[in-house]
Amino acid sequence: MHISDKLIINHLQDGIPVTDEPFAEIATLCGISQDEVVARIQRLLDEGYLSRFGPMFHAQELGGGLTLAAMKIPAEDFERVNQQVNSFDEVAHNYEREHELNMWFVLATKTPQGIAETIRKIEQTTGYPVYNMPKKEEFYVGLRFTL
């Protein structure tokens, strides 16, 4: 990866400035033009190194619901249930993990009540219980994943 791409990733993780020219500082740091910074970010997005560029809203603050949920699915049934779970628009990401509870997904809904409704629908569709584990407390770690 080009050094400019690394600098962009390391510096803009949690701080895109809200100024008239937000890319001026990183452009100077990289020794390239602002247009080139923009082009590099676009390419990082297009190639999938970045999944998003810009502000992320807080679900609860905006009136939405967000939770982490887990299910215990026998291996022979995993494929079917996985397809059913992923067919819900409210399922944001879904990982298979090594544990008895082997399916872990994030639910994001337009309203807080949407979480319980969606969980009920997933349980009805799949025939398996869903364990709901909404966050009680977030311990902020900052974003400083450096390449």
Binding site: S51, F57, A59, L62, G64, V91, N94, Y95, A108, K110
Partner: peptide, 17 residues
């Protein structure tokens, strides 16, 4: 990882991540 979509939280009813 079976599914990852960007945080898109509709604000249609003043609702959203």
């Amino acid at each position: 990882q079976y599914k990852q979509r960007g945080g898109r939280y509709a604000v249609a009813s003043a609702g959203a991540a």
